[in-house]
Design a protein around this nucleic acid. Structure first.
Length: 373
DNA sequence: AATACGGGGGA
DNA sequence: TCCCCAGTATT
């Protein structure tokens, strides 16, 4: 785009935004801390979902220091149900780094921001432009869609070379002033007008600049290769009783669902029954034998790269002391205490279905020869 | 350069 | 029910 049309594009976009700006709690502030929190929440997460979490988070942790002093478990509990829990772990780590290395101030330069865990080029650009008013571009999914349509970008937008080109494009369109409005406008346009399907081209302020609209091929962009099929797995979980309490285990701090609590168990191997699976997993994870009494419920749950059916079984703990062999910690608790702990969505579904988790009645199944206990 | 990482919403 | 969405860290 040449300079005059670029200015026209920027003006049309920002004028539209000022007239159509949706109110959001983080749009009421310039506080870099709050902008950082909101942008982290908004990664992979829609505005409607993020809003409630944002209000609770800011109310509990109004500034960097309060977040840095918090326990990770408290932060994860506030994040429960949102997914991508590394975001919460990184927020917590970054807060203490900001206190130590930056005297409690969120950095106002690209290098400082990128040095913090959980902050990549998008979040750094958002904080710099929105909180500090600096002319730094942002490129999120919305902007990718808008730009790929405006310029009919033919390459797969998931390829890193294409991403690089899109960053260059975003940078070249960036105005010198009005940076906050401009970047928010670009993302807002992608969210409410330039939607993935059925984009509202008739009301689009930059329709005159759009090559895809000119050729009536808006919905063909952004281009990307078809994704591959996702596998389905069967997973077991034990409600393992002893002395009126049951076991929960803490997932290792790194990796999937890291730092969350769950009912112990694991993935079924090929050819293994669910009961065999559960007994094996408990042996490997906690070093004890169990007696499986009955199946309680099964729930389906979808992750990004696979789906699971999670089967919950009522069990009794056998003799021997529990050791955290393949988890970071374990606790014996009652159902009243469940809400204190952050759980993955699938485990929450089980908890909801059981409504109350009561100890097994005696004589549920006749004792068998070789049963533990 | 490719893959792992959750869960919600819309068709 | 299925399909789509998409920043950062890791390998």
């Amino acid at each position: 785009m040449k300079a005059p049309e670029k200015r026209k594009f920027q003006t049309r976009l920002v004028r539209w935004f000022k007239a159509n700006r949706r109110p959001m709690p983080w749009r009421e502030t310039n506080d870099p801390y709050k902008i950082w929190i909101s942008e982290t929440l908004l990664q992979q997460t829609q505005v409607a979902t993020a809003t409630g979490y944002y209000l609770r988070f800011i109310s509990r942790f109004p500034d960097v220091r309060s977040l840095s002093r918090a326990r990770l478990q408290t932060v994860l509990k506030l994040w429960e149900g949102l997914g991508y829990y590394a975001r919460a772990r990184n927020l917590h780590r970054a807060a203490s780094q900001i206190v130590k290395r930056f005297n409690g101030r969120v950095p106002d330069d690209m290098e400082g921001l990128l040095s913090l865990p959980g902050i990549g080029r998008y979040t750094a650009g958002a904080v710099l432009s929105i909180a500090y008013g600096k002319p730094v571009p942002v490129l999120d999914g919305n902007v990718i869609r808008v730009l790929s349509r405006l310029f009919r970008v033919e390459d797969d937008v998931r390829r890193s070379e294409t991403r690089e080109a899109l960053w260059d494009l975003a940078e070249s369109l960036m105005p010198a002033g009005n940076c906050r409005d401009y970047n928010e406008a670009l993302m807002e346009l992608g969210a409410v007008v330039c939607a993935p399907r059925n984009p509202a081209c008739p009301v689009c302020p930059v329709r005159p600049d759009c090559k895809a609209f000119a050729a009536s091929v808006q919905e063909d962009y952004p281009r990307s290769a078809p994704r591959k099929a996702i596998p389905h797995k069967h997973v077991t979980a034990g409600i393992i009783w002893k002395n009126g309490k049951f076991l929960i285990t803490l997932r290792p701090a790194r990796g999937m669902l890291g730092g969350l609590w769950e009912f112990p168990g694991g993935k079924a191997e090929p050819g293994e029954t669910l009961e065999q699976c559960l007994k094996r997993e408990i042996r490997e994870e906690l070093g004890i034998e169990i007696r499986v009494l009955r199946k309680l419920v099964s729930v389906n749950h979808a992750y990004t790269h696979f789906r699971i059916t999670l089967h919950a079984f009522e069990c009794l703990a056998g003799a021997g002391r529990v050791r955290p062999l393949a988890c970071d910690d374990f606790k014996w608790i009652t159902s009243r205490e469940l809400d204190r702990y952050p759980f993955p969505g699938a485990d929450r579904k089980i908890i909801a279905l059981l409504s109350r988790i009561d100890p097994p009645k005696r004589g549920t199944r006749p004792p068998e020869k070789g049963d533990p206990g």
